[in-house]
């Protein structure tokens, strides 16, 4: 939940700084670097977790189930919108 406070604070800050075009590129680059750093941390935490290493096939299977559920659910719901507003 605290993460939302930082997100909203950031949005306000960004809105105030929106005319500072030179900042934009720096912000995007920093996001990429932060994501790299955090995924490195996640990798480190996971590699040290024997439970994950031993059960990687189960984890992969769960991931695929979630992917299929999400993709089919989103296609089904948006299909209604497609029929009503888009299809000619």
């Amino acid at each position: 939940m605290e993460t939302l406070i930082f997100l909203v604070g950031g949005i306000f800050l960004g809105f105030l700084l929106r005319k500072k075009n030179r900042l934009r590129e720096g912000v995007e680059k920093s996001i990429t670097v932060m994501i790299w750093v955090l995924l490195l941390f996640l990798g480190i935490a996971i590699g040290a977790n024997q439970q994950v290493v031993d059960n990687i096939h189960i984890i992969g299977g769960k991931a695929i189930v979630l992917t299929l559920g999400g993709v089919l659910g989103s296609i089904a719901c948006s299909y209604v919108v497609y029929l009503k507003y888009f299809k000619r």
Binding site: E2, T3, L7, L16, S30, M34
Partner: peptide, 19 residues
């Protein structure tokens, strides 16, 4: 360390959305 990094990342994502 990763908690603070996450806060930093969320702030940056916010700034980029706001801008």
């Amino acid at each position: 360390l990763s908690t603070y990094a996450l806060y930093g990342l969320m702030t940056l994502v916010g700034v980029s959305l706001g801008m």
